[in-house]
């Protein structure tokens, strides 16, 4: 899954976007890894993440069998425990942080826990470099995201792209991002309401609500 790599934006726009994830390697360190993955998430939960996910659900998930009154009072409280309890087989688990300090503090404790599982940080190149330096480790490998190649003009404007690509698996469609952007712009939803709607659609839990709020607020001031 390159579901966190190709987020649209310049380096500065990732100032509040730090994703730390752990992933076991099939056949190499996936034996008995589930308790380690759960412990990884427990550490992350201590540092006030903006979102967390286990590959099947994020901290906000779709709800089945809603009562019509839910349109006025839907629960938007992140549920870390459900994410942790839901880890039942080897796979990627992740946490999103909106501040550098929280991300660094979390990474330090993950290093100390020494799970032996690969840990990656997805953010701007410089942010990750600084995180490694601050935490006293050396980066092993790096994968750069090059710009999208769109010779046939399929992609929407940068505001929609910024919101939509935070779910790298494409579960937040351009149409849904555009719709929420319009609803906020026209005062029909608050930024918080729009963000929770978008967040629920991302099953991996890597959608960053803080960055989404900032992008929505900026987009309301300037239409492109």
């Amino acid at each position: 899954m390159t579901n966190t790599l190709h987020r649209y934006g310049h380096a500065e726009s990732f100032k509040d976007d730090y994703i730390i994830f752990a992933i076991p390697s099939k056949g190499k360190n996936d034996e008995d890894c589930i308790p380690k993955l759960k412990q990884f998430l427990r550490i992350c939960a201590k540092y006030n993440p903006s979102n967390m996910g286990n590959g099947n659900r994020g901290s906000l998930a779709p709800e089945k069998g809603l009562h019509p009154t839910a349109h006025w009072k839907r629960d938007a409280t992140p549920d870390w425990e459900k994410v942790i309890d839901g880890v039942n087989k080897p796979g990627t688990v992740s946490a999103v942080f909106a501040s550098e300090e929280q991300a660094h503090a979390c990474l330090k404790e993950v290093i100390a826990a020494d799970f032996g599982i690969s840990v990656n940080m997805s953010t701007s190149v410089e942010n990750a470099k600084r995180a490694a330096e601050t935490c006293g480790i050396k980066r092993h490998s790096v994968e750069y995201a090059l710009a999208f190649n769109d010779p046939h003009d399929h992609l929407p404007n940068s505001q929609v792209l910024g919101l939509s690509t935070m779910c790298g698996h494409g579960m937040v469609s351009f149409n849904m991002a555009r719709k929420m952007l319009d609803m906020v712009r026209e005062g029909r939803r608050t930024t918080e309401q729009a963000v929770t709607t978008l967040m629920r659609l991302c099953p991996c839990g890597v959608y960053n609500p803080e960055r989404a709020k900032r992008l929505l607020e900026a987009a309301c001031k300037e239409q492109r």
Binding site: L5, F115, G116, S118, S124, K129, R139, H140, V142, A145
Partner: peptide
């Protein structure tokens, strides 16, 4: 001349732990 601002960085904390390997 390629632009890249974002990356996924492997922090080098993994190792082989499966007994058979």
């Amino acid at each position: 001349g390629y632009y890249y601002s974002r990356a996924k960085t492997n922090m080098g904390l993994g190792r082989i732990t499966n007994q058979i390997v």
